[in-house]
Design a protein around this nucleic acid. Structure first.
Lengths: 218, 218
DNA sequence: GCAAAAGTGTTGTCAGTACACCCATGT
DNA sequence: ACATGGGTGTACTGACAACACTTTTGC
């Protein structure tokens, strides 16, 4: 039993995924998703946490399962069933570094991902689908923005996550009508244009709205 | 590694789930979801298929993963990681019967499910959530209706699956506008009221619509 | 005729889209 | 002044809910 982590990162308005170059057979030297066996005293989620910490030093993050892959011959050496787990992190916060099973670690734009080891192409594809589905229904991704952000920042984030473009006016209306942003009454400074209003994510308000069966569609 | 099957059935306008009474320790005599270990030559899906066939004799069905549960102490005897798998079948088609690990088999209405063995309460709850989410986005459940059915049949099915009530006129408009039903130009016979028009599910049409990025919301 | 369920039409509201326009700042 | 993005108003459309109404059958 193993875990494969799909670590999404956001930087420069781009959605990227963390890949490693395998340091050991099988598929040595080929790119793959970071993954490892689940130890006897770990849950899948704890193992995923450990993997991400080894690679990036990031300790605080949410992980979410995608699917479990059990094809008998998916691993050429032994029977290994693996569960996909994804997380979204802020690339700026930490630099990834190689570790036990990784010769090298790379942030790769989704369009530039080459063929991966094992069935990782499929695992990645499934994860992207699941992520995009989820983003449209719940306000995730706020971990990727600074504490105070502008609506344009948020729009860029969503556009990168979903790979679409939104109309500015309409995006604003939708987000603001959802009422889970706190208007800080502060503004950008030193920008060569009209300074934008700053907001923060109001998680108390969101929890309250959610408890009342509220949902948004983006 | 094991599988636990959440088998949903539909009968008399009611959504039910298949439970077994455990014939062996641990939790002997308690109700549980049917489940078994995944054999070395099986995928999770194949194992789920085998379980359902053992219990109900049903051979043809679709299975779909829910989540994988890996809490270290979820099984009191050994470390067992389990994946939830659900399917929907037509109760009328086959009678369930006890098997290797089942002393008895019962169709139980969702509201009447008692406390279950292991973490099966949680597994069932998650499966119901996932099923309801899915039903709203894709036309599943047609396996549960006879070949030819009325719009009222379909409405009853959806109401049972989702545990809600729909307005008749609006439900019809939505379903018919989706255009994946074939109007058979046939009618009910021998009913003590105006006979209803019969339809069948047009899967060719649905595949075609789906290929063009179409989706419905029910 | 009456009960029962099939099936339709009308109206109001609201969310989402497209698009044009104004505003505030640095250079 | 002007470039650059921030921010807003309006008008159109289409989906959806509510609800009242007509139709067709068996008894």
């Amino acid at each position: 039993m193993s875990v494969d982590s799909i670590v999404f990162g956001y930087h420069d308005d781009q959605l990227k995924v963390l890949l490693i170059k395998r340091g050991a057979a099988p598929f040595q030297g080929q790119l793959a998703l970071p993954g490892d066996l689940v130890y006897p005293n770990e849950t899948i989620e704890v193992a995923a946490h450990r993997i991400l910490k080894d690679l990036t030093g990031i300790d605080e993050h949410n992980v979410e399962q995608t699917k479990t892959y059990s094809a008998v011959d998916r691993h050429p050496v032994a029977r290994v069933i693996t569960t996909g787990v994804y997380s979204i992190i802020d690339i700026a916060k930490h630099d990834p570094h190689a570790s036990a099973w990784a010769e090298g670690v790379y942030w790769t734009s989704l369009e530039d991902v080459p063929q991966l080891a094992f069935d990782h192409d499929q695992i990645l594809k499934d994860a992207v689908d699941i992520l995009r589905n989820k983003v449209r229904k719940e306000p995730i991704g706020f971990e990727l923005l600074p504490e105070k952000f502008t609506l344009a920042d948020l729009q860029n984030l969503y556009e990168a996550l979903l790979n679409v473009k939104f109309d500015k006016a309409n995006f604003r209306k939708r987000i603001l009508s959802a009422k889970f942003l706190k208007d800080l009454n502060e503004f950008q400074e030193g920008v060569p244009h009209r300074p934008a209003r700053l907001y923060s994510f109001d998680s108390d308000k969101y929890d309250e709205l959610r408890a009342n069966g509220f949902s948004i569609q983006i």
